[in-house]
Amino acid sequence: MDTPDEPRHTADDADAPESAAAAHPSGRIDGWRDFQDRLRAALAMGTTEPADWRLCDPDFVSWPLGERAIVEVLQQGVLAHPRTRLTLLAARFDEFPRKHPRWLAWRQDWTHRVRCLQANEEDAPQLRPMLLWPGRLGLRLLDGVSGRGVWSTDPATLHVWQADFDVISQRSAEAMPGTILGL
């Protein structure tokens, strides 16, 4: 995935010692469309190697998880890499059946690799939209209404974001079972 605000390389800078990603380990996200485009690109990039994705949002209603292309990318990733995992952390999942039915259908086959966690009432107000590929890439919205935020490949920043996610997820409960067992 090209990192945002990355300069285009020319023949004159072919001998540059640092990659553009190392020179620019972070940048801005300028709205929900920008966030969604970066999310799609990040997930596609994640199919090339095992990934342990962490996604966080109060309700995921503005995410493109129900798109056919997103489900296909997720399918490619989990089929290609047995260690690929996905954890979603939300305040509530009540809009998933309406907003992301295709994702829910896909998840039924992958409940052993896809966890859904519901934050407790105390932690729920702290949830901000975020995608984290630990050690590689993060997208984090600072304003969930406008969709403005930041992206980063900086290991120190990603470590802080992962710690924030982990603190809330450890106090969260399993939610949205992949299948409903009955008699």
Rank of each mutant, 00 (worst) to 15 (best):
S146L: 13
G149C: 01
G135K: 07
L141Y: 01
L127D: 10
L139R: 07
R148K: 14
A156F: 09
W133I: 12
V150Q: 14
L139A: 10
S146V: 13
D143E: 12
L131T: 05
R148V: 00
G147A: 08
W151I: 02
R128E: 10
L139E: 03
V160S: 09
L132F: 09
G138C: 09
W151Q: 01
R136L: 02
T157N: 06
L139D: 08
W133H: 06
W133V: 14
L131E: 03
H159V: 00
V150L: 13
M130Q: 13
L132R: 01
L139S: 13
P155Q: 11
T153C: 12
V145D: 11
W151E: 04
V160R: 14
R128K: 11
G149Q: 02
G149S: 07
P134D: 10
R128F: 03
L142I: 08
R128S: 13
D143G: 07
A156K: 13
H159W: 10
M130R: 12
S152R: 01
G135S: 05
G138E: 01
L158I: 07
L158D: 04
G147M: 11
W151L: 02
L141E: 09
W151S: 01
W133K: 01
L131P: 10
T153A: 14
W161Q: 15
V145I: 08
T153W: 00
P129V: 03
P129I: 01
P155D: 11
V150F: 03
H159R: 15
G135D: 03
W161F: 12
L158Q: 02
D143T: 07
L132D: 09
G138Q: 01
T157P: 00
V150I: 14
R148A: 05
R128V: 12
V160Q: 11
S152F: 03
A156L: 13
Q126P: 00
D143K: 03
H159D: 15
V145M: 03
G138S: 10
R136M: 02
Q126M: 06
L127C: 05
V150N: 05
V160C: 05
R148Y: 02
T153H: 08
W161R: 08
P155F: 03
L131F: 14
L139F: 07
D143L: 06
M130N: 05
W133C: 00
G144E: 05
G144P: 02
L137Y: 15
S146F: 10
T153N: 01
L132A: 05
